[in-house]
């Protein structure tokens, strides 16, 4: 009888332990699966480990945006959605000079040299997004930024973006307006985390030392205005 009682006490303990092991191993497998998905399907074009190119020729050799700080850069929800239906963000590719040709009025993007981004299944997109969220280089830069909630009228934002700072020279703020050598910004608000936007505007070189975006020494006030403007652009659906 005594032995039977002891067995009855051991069974629940064993079951609980088994549960913990199963939960732990599936979490471990999930993490592993996410990272191996990144390694197998993304690492041939994207740098997952850093550092960013430190010379012009390394910059030219980069095939796709660095992802070793993806967790500080991207919004998870946007990643999950975009990875299933990728749409080009950089109109002239990763290094614009490799994808342009002389045109009658100006240099033109040579579409024939640009390749589409692969699409993932819903399950893989979630797995990849979760793994990317764990790549968090430059936490120190993010920690320096504070972006209070706020709004700005699109007319004031456009004045700051276009007339005061000249950002439209390289970036599109609508599908049919703006420059082509930088990433489009009409979806930036839904794509990027606010503190990343602030930090990158403050010093692109702190994230990517050789990048072709200049440091314009934008003031704190203007940085906040730009972030609010980019958020307003995404919400306004001006890219439609």
């Amino acid at each position: 009888m005594k032995e039977r009682l002891r067995t009855l006490r051991i069974y629940p303990a064993l079951l609980a332990l088994g549960g913990v092991v199963v939960a732990f191993s599936s979490a471990w497998a999930g993490e592993d699966a996410g990272m191996s998905l990144l390694n197998n399907r993304c690492a041939s074009c994207h740098n997952l480990r850093g550092p960013a190119p430190s010379s012009i020729h390394a910059l030219w050799a980069r095939k796709a945006p660095d992802l070793f700080y993806a967790g500080n850069k991207f919004r998870r929800k946007w990643l999950i959605s975009w990875l299933q239906k990728p749409v080009r963000i950089r109109p002239a590719g990763e290094f614009y000079a490799d994808h342009i040709k002389p045109g009658p009025k100006r240099d033109m993007v040579d579409e024939s040299t640009l390749k589409p981004h692969l699409a993932l299944s819903a399950a893989d997109a979630k797995l990849a997004a979760d793994a990317l969220m764990k790549l968090r280089a430059h936490d120190d830069l993010i920690a320096k930024e504070q972006v209070p909630e706020g709004t700005i009228s699109t007319s004031m934002g456009s004045l700051v973006f276009d007339k005061f700072l000249g950002c439209m020279a390289c970036h599109r703020i609508r599908k049919d307006f703006g420059g082509l050598s930088g990433p489009e910004l009409y979806t930036a608000g839904e794509r990027l985390k606010p503190r990343f936007m602030a930090s990158y505007i403050r010093s692109p070189q702190a994230w990517d030392p050789k990048i072709w975006m200049p440091n314009k020494h934008v003031s704190d006030t203007r940085i906040i205005q730009l972030v609010h403007y980019l958020q307003a652009l995404s919400k306004g659906g001006s890219h439609e």
Binding site: I100, A169, C170, S181
Partner: peptide, 9 residues
């Protein structure tokens, strides 16, 4: 790298 985006290749 830096100038051709606006001043042309």
């Amino acid at each position: 790298t830096y100038c051709a985006q606006c001043h042309g290749i």
